[in-house]
């Protein structure tokens, strides 16, 4: 994307001068508050809207009105609300709908592969409207995967999901070997899935890893983003004097960070006491804890 600018019909600026490149195989999150232009950006990449100025290049080809339909098969957009994307009466028919429209061969095998990738092989004969919201999201993803696009665009993939469905979807997306552009305000989920993130608030505010972004409190504050609970905890620990190197965003990162801190502190304590100290590490930690309590 080069210098993308988009205005709504009422004159509201949705995006201003957005530059963003995504490499093949890369997973990128666009984080930002409501109204930041995340969904608009995805719609521009999918060719549903054309930019006021600037260009969208997919595999070097510029997206325009003429080739939007053709290029859309290269980028699969998964909507925030799966209800809007599911059309056919059964799951397998809905998943087969895209490949059939594209005139692809071996549709059954494609459907099976897509259902397996989305972890819903058992739902093939089910009626989508009878499924839970989380399962509908998977059906919508499978419907796009069956078309085998080069890139997946996901609009708020974790919104409206219960914790378990969210966890399962995050795992699914993390393990999926696809180029992805994910619009979300769920920083925790983004940290689990993506390699790189972009803070968007009409224009690009910051680009980096999720850890870089959560360390930039000013950016988060300006963009109206809230730190995930686990980052808040480590931030508070840092302010209390614990030597926290980086703010973890997800629970896995928190466990890794905590293990690192504990190991380092244990090493430092044993070095301070010197060799030949008769006390065991456990006793030493207990004593330290009592000391801290004092």
């Amino acid at each position: 994307m080069r210098g993308l600018t988009y205005k709504y019909e009422d004159g509201t600026m949705a995006l201003r001068d957005v530059d963003l490149s995504i490499e093949r195989g890369e997973k990128v999150a666009i984080v930002g508050p409501n109204g930041a232009g995340k969904s608009t950006l995805l719609n521009l990449v999918a060719g549903f809207r054309m930019p006021f100025s600037g260009r969208v290049l997919i595999e070097g080809r510029e997206l325009n009105h003429e080739n939007a339909d053709e290029l859309r098969s290269e980028v699969g957009l998964v909507f925030q609300d799966p209800e809007d994307q599911i059309f056919m009466p059964t799951v397998e028919e809905d998943v087969a709908f895209g490949p059939r429209n594209l005139g692809l061969d071996d549709i059954d095998a494609r459907v099976t592969r897509a259902l397996r990738s989305a972890g819903i092989e058992g739902l093939a004969k089910r009626r989508p409207h009878r499924l839970s919201y989380g399962m509908k999201k998977r059906v919508a993803i499978a419907g796009i995967l069956a078309m085998e696009p080069e890139m997946l665009l996901l609009d708020e993939p974790t919104s409206g999901l219960d914790p378990r469905a969210r966890l399962e979807l995050v795992k699914l997306l993390r393990e999926m070997d696809k180029t992805m552009l994910i619009a979300t305000h769920d920083l925790e989920a983004a940290a689990e899935i993506v390699d790189r993130a972009v803070v968007l608030n009409v224009s690009v505010v910051m680009e980096g890893t999720m850890s870089d972004i959560v360390m930039s409190k000013k950016v988060l504050q300006d963009a109206g983003l809230e730190l995930p609970p686990v980052s808040k905890l480590f931030d508070a620990m840092g302010r209390m004097g614990y030597p926290v190197d980086s703010l973890p965003v997800s629970m896995d990162q928190a466990v890794a960070e905590l293990t690192r801190v504990i190991d380092r502190e244990a090493k430092r304590t044993s070095e301070l006491r010197g060799p030949g100290n008769p006390r065991s590490d456990r006793k030493s930690r207990q004593s330290d804890a009592r000391g801290n309590g004092d």
């Binding site: 549903f48 909507f79 809007d84 059309f87 895209g98």
Partner: peptide
């Protein structure tokens, strides 16, 4: 949106 969803599926 449903129509856009259909167009997403070619």
């Amino acid at each position: 949106r449903v129509y856009e969803g259909l167009r997403c599926k070619a």
